[in-house]
Design a protein around this nucleic acid. Sequence first.
DNA 1: CGGCAACTCTACATCGTTGTAGAAGGCGCG
DNA 2: CGCGCCTTCTACAACGATGTAGAGTTGCCG
Lengths: 349, 349
Amino acid sequence: MSTAKRGSAVTMHEVAARAGVSIKTVSNVVNGYQYIRPATKERVEAAIADLGYQVNISARNLRRGRTGIIGLAVPELSLPYFAELADSVIRAAEARGLTVLIEQTGSVRERELDVLSGQRRHLTDGLIFSPLELGPQDAEALHVDFPMVLLGERIFGGPADHVTMNNVEAARAATQHLLDLGRRRIAVIGAHEGETVGSAALRVQGYRQALEEAGLTVDPALIGEAGLWHRATGAETMERLLDSGVEIDAVFGLNDALALGALHVLHARRIDVPGQIAVIGFDDIEETAYSSPTLTTVAPGREQIATTAVDLLLARIEEVEPGRPFVQVITDFEIVGRESTLGEQGTAG
Amino acid sequence: MSTAKRGSAVTMHEVAARAGVSIKTVSNVVNGYQYIRPATKERVEAAIADLGYQVNISARNLRRGRTGIIGLAVPELSLPYFAELADSVIRAAEARGLTVLIEQTGSVRERELDVLSGQRRHLTDGLIFSPLELGPQDAEALHVDFPMVLLGERIFGGPADHVTMNNVEAARAATQHLLDLGRRRIAVIGAHEGETVGSAALRVQGYRQALEEAGLTVDPALIGEAGLWHRATGAETMERLLDSGVEIDAVFGLNDALALGALHVLHARRIDVPGQIAVIGFDDIEETAYSSPTLTTVAPGREQIATTAVDLLLARIEEVEPGRPFVQVITDFEIVGRESTLGEQGTAG
DNA sequence: CGGCAACTCTACATCGTTGTAGAAGGCGCG
DNA sequence: CGCGCCTTCTACAACGATGTAGAGTTGCCG
C-alpha cells in the first residue's frame, strides 16, 4: 500500500509536489495546524502515506531549537537500582513524548563533571543527573545554563531542582525497625569516612539518631566502610566485621547491593538470618523480594522520583514559569518488611 | 577565563567575527582541516574559548545527515540481563564516539514493531535490536532500510546482521552439566509452548538433545511453561512443578531470573539445593554470584556481544563495504559452575 | 453593499553547519 | 618568466524543516 522508499529520504518538497500544495501546507498538516480544508488535509495525508514520508528530526530540531531528548546520567546500569530507575525515567519521559539518552559516569568524578559540560548537552534539552562522586568542591560546576534536575540530597546548595527522599529520616526508620525487633548491636555497611554531605553520610546520620533516641551509644566498631556500594564490597565489609569479633545482632546495609553481599557472607558462614543477625537494606530493588531470605528494605518511591524529575525538567525546558526558584522535592519512603528481619512470617504468599 | 554565555547559543558567526576570519574557517578549525596557518588556528581557538562556543549538533546533523546516536531497543532495563547488556553496549558505543538512546519495548509485540518504523529512527544512525516477541509472521517488518543489528538467534532469516550465542549448544552444555552430576529428572522452566524459533524453543531443543544423547526420554511433565522470563514467573512455575508431584532432581532455568525465582521457592520449601535439586540458570547476571546458594549458569559473553554488535552496526552505518551480505556472528559461551549445582565446593573465595 | 473578521494557503527567510568551487598568494622548476 | 602546484582562506549554496507576513477567499453584520 505504500511506496515507501525510506532509504533516500523523502522530504516535504516531494510530498508537497505530489499533493499539489506548498511545502508549508505539508508542514501545517504534519503539525496539526487548524486552518486547513479537510480536502487538502486528506490529499496531503495520502501523499505522506504513499511516499512513506517521515519528518526529518534533525531539521526540525535545528529550526525549533529543541531536540525532544533528555539526558539521564547515572553511575552504571549494571547496578540494579539505577537500571530500575532508568526504566522508570524512560517510561515517564515516553509518556510525555520525550526520548532518553543515557550516560554512564561509572561513579568517576571526572566523568560526572564531563556530563555537565560535554558535547552531549547539545543533543538534549535537559538533564536528569544522579551524581555520586561530586562533592562540595564541585558546587561551581553545577551552575549550568541548561535545564537540569538533580537526583539525591541537595548536598551542594547547587542551583538546580532536586528530587530526593529524606535519607536521614528513612535511615532512622530502618534502624528503628531493627530496634523494634530488639536488636541492639546494629552494624552499618557502606559508610564513607570523612564524607558529610552524600547519601552515605546522611544515612549514617539517621542511624545515629535512631540509636541515640533509643538511649544507645554508637559503637564505631560497628560502622563498616565500603566505598563502592556493590555486592562485592558489601560481602567484604561483612566479612571484615565478622572477623573483627565485634558483637553483632543486626546489619543495616546502606543500599540493597551491600545488604545482599552481606547476606551472601552470612549464608556462607551458616549464620542464621534473622535468627542470629537481622539484615535490612535500602532501595527496594526487585531482587530483594527473591533473595533467600527475602530482604527487608527501604522503598524510596522510585516511580514517584522518576515522574517528579521528568515533570520538573519539562517545566524548566518549557519555561512554564521563567524565574521559578529552584525547588527540592522530598519523596515518600516506606519500610518493606521481609524475612531478613521478620523471619518466616515475613514471607509473601 | 571564559566569557561563556551559553544560554543564548554562540554560533560560528560570532566566533568568526571575533577571530576576524570567515565562518568556514572556523568550521575548518573545529573539524581539524589541515590547511590552516597556525596563527589563524590559534586566533580561532582563542575566540572559541573566549566565547565558550560549542558546535550545534542539530545543525551539523542536518548538514551531515548523521546524528552520532544509535538506538538500543530492549525489553526492559529492570531485567538485569538487559541492564547489563545496555551497560556494555553503552561502553562499547562510547569508545567509538557514539551515544546510545534506549528504547524499552516491554516485550510487547506492537511496541517491537513500532521500534522498526517509529519516529525515533530519524534520531539515530542505526539500531541494535533485541526482539523477544516478534515471530515469523513479522519477518516482513524486519526489512528495514536503516542499519540494524539484531541480537538473538537469526530466527526469521531476516535481512540484517545478527549477533547471537549458540542457544542450542549452550543449553545442551547446561543440561549436560546436570547430567554429569548424575541428575536424571531435569525440569525446565521457561518453555514457550508452540514457539519454534525463539530463545525458549532453541534452549529447550538443546535440552532435548542432551537428554537424547544420554539415552534418556524427555518427560513432558518436566517442561514448565513461563511466558515472561521474570523471577516471579520462575517462582510460580517452580511451585507448579513441585505441586504436580512429578519427580525432580534438577532444574534448568532458561534464564537466570527464572532460576532465581525457582531458587527462592526451593528455599522457602526447605528443599536442599543442590542436595535434593540442583539448579542451573542462563545469562550470568551479576546477581547469580551473590544469591544463596550462588547460581551455576551459562555466561553468554556479554561484552563480546556488545562490542561485536556495535562494530557491525558501525560498519553498516559507514558503509565500509556497501553490498556486504548479512552476517551472523556466534559468540562464545561458558558454563560457570557455582553452588547451586556443585554445592559448597562451588563457593568462590 | 462595504467592511471586517475568519479562514486557507503560499512565498520567503531562517535555524547553524558543512561541501563545493574557486580566489589569492607563494614557491619551485624548466 | 610563466606555468603549475601547494597552501590558505572565502563566498555561496545547500541540508529540511518552521515562523512570519501576507495574499486571496468567504461569510457575516450593520
